[in-house]
Amino acid sequence: MIRRKFAKVGLAAVAAVSALTLAACSSNGGGSSTETTAGGNGGDGDLIKVGFSQLGAESGWRTANTESVKASLTKENGIDLIFVDAQQKQENQIKALRDFIAQDVDIIAFSPVIETGWDEVLQEIKDAEIPVVLVDRTVDTTVEDPYVTWIGADFRLEGEMAGEWVKENYPDAKIFELQGTLGSGAQVDREEGFDAVVGADKIIGKATGNFTRAEGKTAVEAALQAYPDMDLIFAHNDDMGLGAIEAIEAAGKKPGEDIIIVTVDAVRDGLQALHDGKFNFVVECNPVFGDQIVDLVKKVYAGEEVPKETIVVDATFDQSITQEEIDARLY
Protein backbone atom coordinates (compact mmCIF):
# COMPACT_ATOMS: atom_id res chain seq x y z
CA MET A 1 0.00 0.00 0.00
CA ILE A 2 2.75 2.40 0.92
CA ARG A 3 4.50 1.66 -2.31
CA ARG A 4 1.36 2.29 -4.29
CA LYS A 5 1.18 5.80 -2.87
CA PHE A 6 4.82 6.47 -3.64
CA ALA A 7 4.32 5.69 -7.26
CA LYS A 8 1.33 8.01 -7.47
CA VAL A 9 2.91 10.93 -5.65
CA GLY A 10 5.97 10.81 -7.80
CA LEU A 11 9.65 10.82 -7.42
CA ALA A 12 10.19 14.01 -5.50
CA ALA A 13 8.34 12.71 -2.49
CA VAL A 14 10.55 9.71 -2.09
CA ALA A 15 13.78 11.66 -1.98
CA ALA A 16 13.62 11.47 1.79
CA VAL A 17 14.14 7.75 1.87
CA SER A 18 17.10 7.94 -0.44
CA ALA A 19 19.64 7.85 2.35
CA LEU A 20 18.05 4.73 3.74
CA THR A 21 18.00 2.82 0.46
CA LEU A 22 21.46 3.93 -0.53
CA ALA A 23 22.82 2.66 2.74
CA ALA A 24 21.66 -0.77 1.71
CA CYS A 25 23.53 -0.54 -1.53
CA SER A 26 26.33 -2.96 -1.99
CA SER A 27 27.52 -4.42 -5.21
CA ASN A 28 26.95 -8.12 -5.10
CA GLY A 29 29.21 -9.44 -7.79
CA GLY A 30 29.36 -13.13 -6.97
CA GLY A 31 26.60 -15.58 -6.21
CA SER A 32 25.41 -18.14 -8.69
CA SER A 33 21.76 -18.48 -9.59
CA THR A 34 19.53 -16.48 -7.33
CA GLU A 35 15.95 -17.53 -7.63
CA THR A 36 13.53 -15.15 -9.24
CA THR A 37 11.28 -13.44 -6.77
CA ALA A 38 8.06 -13.41 -8.68
CA GLY A 39 4.93 -11.42 -7.88
CA GLY A 40 3.85 -11.16 -4.29
CA ASN A 41 2.36 -7.94 -3.01
CA GLY A 42 3.75 -8.98 0.34
CA GLY A 43 4.45 -6.82 3.33
CA ASP A 44 8.13 -6.09 2.59
CA GLY A 45 7.43 -2.42 2.07
CA ASP A 46 11.01 -1.22 2.19
CA LEU A 47 12.00 -3.10 -0.96
CA ILE A 48 12.03 -1.40 -4.34
CA LYS A 49 9.77 -3.32 -6.63
CA VAL A 50 11.43 -3.62 -10.03
CA GLY A 51 9.85 -5.19 -13.08
CA PHE A 52 12.57 -6.39 -15.43
CA SER A 53 11.68 -7.59 -18.91
CA GLN A 54 14.57 -9.38 -20.56
CA LEU A 55 14.27 -9.81 -24.32
CA GLY A 56 15.16 -13.51 -24.33
CA ALA A 57 18.19 -15.76 -24.41
CA GLU A 58 19.51 -15.35 -27.93
CA SER A 59 23.18 -15.70 -27.01
CA GLY A 60 25.57 -16.67 -24.27
CA TRP A 61 26.08 -12.97 -23.66
CA ARG A 62 22.39 -12.50 -22.91
CA THR A 63 22.35 -15.48 -20.58
CA ALA A 64 25.25 -14.00 -18.62
CA ASN A 65 23.43 -10.66 -18.55
CA THR A 66 20.31 -12.34 -17.16
CA GLU A 67 22.35 -14.17 -14.52
CA SER A 68 23.98 -10.93 -13.50
CA VAL A 69 20.65 -9.11 -13.21
CA LYS A 70 19.16 -11.91 -11.14
CA ALA A 71 22.25 -12.12 -8.94
CA SER A 72 22.31 -8.40 -8.24
CA LEU A 73 18.68 -7.33 -8.01
CA THR A 74 18.04 -9.32 -4.84
CA LYS A 75 16.17 -8.79 -1.61
CA GLU A 76 19.53 -8.46 0.20
CA ASN A 77 20.23 -5.49 -2.06
CA GLY A 78 16.85 -4.00 -1.27
CA ILE A 79 15.09 -4.96 -4.48
CA ASP A 80 12.02 -7.06 -5.09
CA LEU A 81 12.59 -8.29 -8.64
CA ILE A 82 9.88 -9.48 -11.01
CA PHE A 83 11.78 -10.99 -13.90
CA VAL A 84 10.02 -11.88 -17.14
CA ASP A 85 11.72 -13.44 -20.16
CA ALA A 86 10.11 -12.28 -23.43
CA GLN A 87 11.61 -15.11 -25.50
CA GLN A 88 12.49 -12.62 -28.24
CA LYS A 89 8.89 -11.65 -28.96
CA GLN A 90 7.80 -8.06 -28.75
CA GLU A 91 4.21 -8.98 -27.91
CA ASN A 92 5.44 -10.92 -24.86
CA GLN A 93 7.47 -7.96 -23.81
CA ILE A 94 4.60 -5.48 -24.20
CA LYS A 95 2.38 -7.82 -22.22
CA ALA A 96 5.01 -8.03 -19.48
CA LEU A 97 5.28 -4.24 -19.34
CA ARG A 98 1.48 -3.94 -19.01
CA ASP A 99 1.56 -6.52 -16.22
CA PHE A 100 4.19 -4.42 -14.48
CA ILE A 101 1.89 -1.40 -14.66
CA ALA A 102 -0.99 -3.46 -13.28
CA GLN A 103 1.21 -4.72 -10.45
CA ASP A 104 2.21 -1.13 -9.78
CA VAL A 105 5.96 -1.67 -9.69
CA ASP A 106 8.23 1.17 -8.62
CA ILE A 107 10.58 0.96 -11.59
CA ILE A 108 10.42 -0.76 -14.94
CA ALA A 109 13.66 -1.93 -16.53
CA PHE A 110 13.80 -3.62 -19.90
CA SER A 111 15.96 -4.56 -22.86
CA PRO A 112 13.75 -3.90 -25.89
CA VAL A 113 13.86 -6.69 -28.43
CA ILE A 114 13.55 -4.21 -31.30
CA GLU A 115 13.68 -0.42 -31.46
CA THR A 116 10.22 0.49 -32.71
CA GLY A 117 6.63 -0.17 -31.74
CA TRP A 118 6.77 0.92 -28.12
CA ASP A 119 4.79 4.18 -28.39
CA GLU A 120 1.56 2.97 -26.86
CA VAL A 121 2.94 0.99 -23.97
CA LEU A 122 5.55 3.63 -23.12
CA GLN A 123 2.77 6.22 -22.97
CA GLU A 124 0.82 3.95 -20.60
CA ILE A 125 3.89 3.61 -18.40
CA LYS A 126 4.35 7.35 -18.47
CA ASP A 127 0.71 7.92 -17.53
CA ALA A 128 1.20 5.55 -14.61
CA GLU A 129 4.27 7.65 -13.66
CA ILE A 130 6.61 4.69 -13.44
CA PRO A 131 10.21 5.55 -14.32
CA VAL A 132 11.83 3.43 -17.02
CA VAL A 133 15.44 2.23 -17.10
CA LEU A 134 16.54 0.94 -20.50
CA VAL A 135 19.12 -1.80 -20.44
CA ASP A 136 21.55 -2.60 -23.26
CA ARG A 137 19.32 -1.53 -26.15
CA THR A 138 17.44 1.64 -27.00
CA VAL A 139 14.00 2.55 -28.29
CA ASP A 140 12.83 4.75 -31.13
CA THR A 141 9.55 6.35 -30.06
CA THR A 142 7.40 9.45 -30.38
CA VAL A 143 6.74 9.52 -26.65
CA GLU A 144 8.55 12.43 -25.05
CA ASP A 145 11.08 11.57 -22.40
CA PRO A 146 10.28 7.86 -22.62
CA TYR A 147 12.95 6.75 -20.18
CA VAL A 148 14.94 8.13 -17.29
CA THR A 149 18.24 6.56 -18.11
CA TRP A 150 19.96 4.02 -20.35
CA ILE A 151 22.71 1.65 -19.38
CA GLY A 152 24.64 -0.49 -21.80
CA ALA A 153 27.77 -1.02 -23.79
CA ASP A 154 29.18 1.45 -26.28
CA PHE A 155 29.61 -0.69 -29.38
CA ARG A 156 31.40 2.06 -31.25
CA LEU A 157 33.97 2.34 -28.52
CA GLU A 158 34.51 -1.42 -28.65
CA GLY A 159 35.18 -1.19 -32.36
CA GLU A 160 37.58 1.68 -31.76
CA MET A 161 39.47 -0.23 -29.07
CA ALA A 162 39.91 -3.17 -31.44
CA GLY A 163 41.01 -0.75 -34.17
CA GLU A 164 43.57 0.96 -31.93
CA TRP A 165 45.22 -2.36 -31.16
CA VAL A 166 45.36 -3.34 -34.81
CA LYS A 167 46.75 0.04 -35.80
CA GLU A 168 49.46 -0.16 -33.19
CA ASN A 169 50.52 -3.79 -33.71
CA TYR A 170 49.71 -4.50 -37.34
CA PRO A 171 49.66 -1.17 -39.16
CA ASP A 172 50.01 -2.82 -42.58
CA ALA A 173 47.47 -5.57 -42.06
CA LYS A 174 45.17 -6.59 -44.87
CA ILE A 175 41.95 -6.92 -42.97
CA PHE A 176 38.87 -9.01 -43.60
CA GLU A 177 35.92 -7.90 -41.49
CA LEU A 178 33.43 -10.51 -40.35
CA GLN A 179 30.23 -8.56 -39.76
CA GLY A 180 27.46 -9.38 -37.33
CA THR A 181 23.81 -9.52 -38.32
CA LEU A 182 23.46 -6.64 -40.74
CA GLY A 183 21.60 -3.68 -39.33
CA SER A 184 22.01 -4.68 -35.69
CA GLY A 185 23.41 -1.99 -33.41
CA ALA A 186 26.46 -4.10 -32.56
CA GLN A 187 27.32 -4.59 -36.23
CA VAL A 188 26.78 -1.00 -37.38
CA ASP A 189 28.60 0.66 -34.49
CA ARG A 190 31.50 -1.78 -34.13
CA GLU A 191 32.14 -1.55 -37.85
CA GLU A 192 31.98 2.25 -37.81
CA GLY A 193 34.33 2.54 -34.86
CA PHE A 194 36.82 0.01 -36.18
CA ASP A 195 36.86 1.31 -39.76
CA ALA A 196 37.31 4.90 -38.61
CA VAL A 197 40.40 4.01 -36.58
CA VAL A 198 42.21 1.63 -38.93
CA GLY A 199 41.20 3.39 -42.13
CA ALA A 200 38.92 1.99 -44.80
CA ASP A 201 41.82 1.31 -47.19
CA LYS A 202 43.19 -1.37 -44.85
CA ILE A 203 39.99 -3.39 -45.09
CA ILE A 204 40.13 -5.51 -48.19
CA GLY A 205 36.82 -7.30 -47.72
CA LYS A 206 33.72 -7.69 -45.58
CA ALA A 207 31.01 -10.29 -45.25
CA THR A 208 28.41 -11.15 -42.68
CA GLY A 209 28.48 -14.22 -40.46
CA ASN A 210 25.24 -13.35 -38.62
CA PHE A 211 27.00 -13.56 -35.24
CA THR A 212 26.98 -17.36 -35.45
CA ARG A 213 29.82 -19.85 -35.49
CA ALA A 214 28.47 -21.82 -38.46
CA GLU A 215 27.97 -18.83 -40.73
CA GLY A 216 31.22 -17.23 -39.60
CA LYS A 217 32.99 -20.40 -40.68
CA THR A 218 31.26 -20.45 -44.08
CA ALA A 219 32.11 -16.81 -44.70
CA VAL A 220 35.77 -17.27 -43.83
CA GLU A 221 36.04 -20.41 -45.98
CA ALA A 222 34.98 -18.32 -48.94
CA ALA A 223 37.08 -15.33 -47.87
CA LEU A 224 40.26 -17.43 -47.73
CA GLN A 225 39.67 -18.11 -51.42
CA ALA A 226 38.45 -14.65 -52.37
CA TYR A 227 41.12 -12.66 -50.51
CA PRO A 228 44.26 -14.82 -50.53
CA ASP A 229 46.44 -12.03 -49.16
CA MET A 230 44.36 -11.29 -46.08
CA ASP A 231 46.32 -11.62 -42.87
CA LEU A 232 43.98 -10.26 -40.20
CA ILE A 233 40.34 -10.95 -39.39
CA PHE A 234 38.23 -8.65 -37.28
CA ALA A 235 35.11 -10.49 -36.14
CA HIS A 236 32.22 -8.60 -34.57
CA ASN A 237 31.82 -11.33 -31.96
CA ASP A 238 33.67 -14.32 -30.51
CA ASP A 239 31.41 -16.96 -32.03
CA MET A 240 32.18 -15.89 -35.59
CA GLY A 241 35.87 -15.73 -34.68
CA LEU A 242 35.66 -19.32 -33.42
CA GLY A 243 34.07 -20.28 -36.73
CA ALA A 244 36.94 -18.50 -38.49
CA ILE A 245 39.44 -20.62 -36.55
CA GLU A 246 37.79 -23.79 -37.83
CA ALA A 247 37.86 -22.55 -41.42
CA ILE A 248 41.48 -21.42 -41.21
CA GLU A 249 42.63 -24.69 -39.64
CA ALA A 250 40.73 -26.66 -42.27
CA ALA A 251 42.64 -24.72 -44.92
CA GLY A 252 45.92 -25.82 -43.32
CA LYS A 253 46.87 -22.43 -41.90
CA LYS A 254 47.54 -21.42 -38.32
CA PRO A 255 44.98 -19.06 -36.76
CA GLY A 256 46.72 -16.48 -34.60
CA GLU A 257 49.97 -16.76 -36.60
CA ASP A 258 49.29 -16.90 -40.33
CA ILE A 259 46.10 -14.96 -39.83
CA ILE A 260 45.68 -12.66 -36.85
CA ILE A 261 42.22 -12.73 -35.26
CA VAL A 262 40.69 -9.85 -33.31
CA THR A 263 37.20 -10.21 -31.83
CA VAL A 264 34.70 -8.56 -29.50
CA ASP A 265 32.73 -10.13 -26.60
CA ALA A 266 35.17 -12.10 -24.43
CA VAL A 267 32.99 -15.08 -23.62
CA ARG A 268 34.80 -18.00 -22.04
CA ASP A 269 35.26 -19.97 -25.27
CA GLY A 270 36.70 -16.89 -26.91
CA LEU A 271 39.15 -16.25 -24.10
CA GLN A 272 40.16 -19.90 -24.16
CA ALA A 273 41.01 -19.50 -27.86
CA LEU A 274 43.00 -16.40 -26.91
CA HIS A 275 44.90 -18.37 -24.28
CA ASP A 276 45.55 -21.14 -26.82
CA GLY A 277 47.09 -18.55 -29.14
CA LYS A 278 44.38 -18.79 -31.78
CA PHE A 279 42.94 -15.36 -31.09
CA ASN A 280 45.27 -12.39 -30.74
CA PHE A 281 43.16 -9.70 -29.14
CA VAL A 282 39.70 -9.63 -27.59
CA VAL A 283 37.68 -6.58 -26.59
CA GLU A 284 35.21 -7.29 -23.84
CA CYS A 285 31.54 -6.58 -24.16
CA ASN A 286 30.70 -6.87 -20.51
CA PRO A 287 27.28 -8.33 -19.71
CA VAL A 288 27.87 -8.45 -15.95
CA PHE A 289 26.53 -5.06 -14.96
CA GLY A 290 23.70 -6.09 -12.64
CA ASP A 291 25.43 -4.19 -9.83
CA GLN A 292 25.45 -1.03 -11.91
CA ILE A 293 21.75 -1.49 -12.64
CA VAL A 294 21.10 -1.77 -8.89
CA ASP A 295 22.89 1.53 -8.30
CA LEU A 296 20.91 3.22 -11.04
CA VAL A 297 17.59 1.81 -9.88
CA LYS A 298 18.20 3.07 -6.39
CA LYS A 299 19.18 6.53 -7.56
CA VAL A 300 16.16 6.74 -9.84
CA TYR A 301 13.88 5.51 -7.06
CA ALA A 302 15.31 8.12 -4.76
CA GLY A 303 14.67 10.77 -7.36
CA GLU A 304 18.33 11.63 -7.71
CA GLU A 305 19.77 13.14 -10.82
CA VAL A 306 21.14 10.36 -13.04
CA PRO A 307 23.07 10.68 -16.29
CA LYS A 308 21.00 9.99 -19.40
CA GLU A 309 23.54 7.36 -20.44
CA THR A 310 25.70 5.01 -18.41
CA ILE A 311 28.36 3.19 -20.34
CA VAL A 312 29.45 -0.16 -19.02
CA VAL A 313 33.19 -0.40 -18.68
CA ASP A 314 34.77 -2.85 -21.10
CA ALA A 315 38.19 -4.41 -20.64
CA THR A 316 40.51 -5.76 -23.31
CA PHE A 317 42.54 -8.96 -23.30
CA ASP A 318 45.60 -10.12 -25.20
CA GLN A 319 47.41 -13.45 -25.21
CA SER A 320 48.95 -12.83 -21.78
CA ILE A 321 45.64 -13.92 -20.24
CA THR A 322 45.95 -16.68 -17.64
CA GLN A 323 43.91 -19.85 -17.30
CA GLU A 324 42.73 -18.68 -13.86
CA GLU A 325 41.17 -15.56 -15.35
CA ILE A 326 39.31 -17.69 -17.86
CA ASP A 327 38.09 -20.16 -15.26
CA ALA A 328 36.83 -17.29 -13.14
CA ARG A 329 34.72 -16.08 -16.04
CA LEU A 330 31.00 -16.27 -15.33
CA TYR A 331 29.98 -16.80 -18.93
Binding site: G205, K206, A207, T208, A219, A222, Q225, A226
Partner: peptide, 11 residues
Protein backbone atom coordinates in the same frame (compact mmCIF):
# COMPACT_ATOMS: atom_id res chain seq x y z
CA UNK B 1 25.81 -17.68 -50.92
CA UNK B 2 29.43 -18.58 -51.51
CA UNK B 3 30.10 -16.68 -54.72
CA UNK B 4 28.86 -13.36 -53.36
CA UNK B 5 31.97 -13.33 -51.19
CA UNK B 6 34.16 -14.48 -54.08
CA UNK B 7 32.74 -11.66 -56.22
CA UNK B 8 33.42 -9.21 -53.36
CA UNK B 9 29.74 -8.28 -53.29
CA UNK B 10 28.89 -6.51 -50.01
CA UNK B 11 26.71 -8.67 -47.76
Amino acid sequence: ERVVIIFHIPS
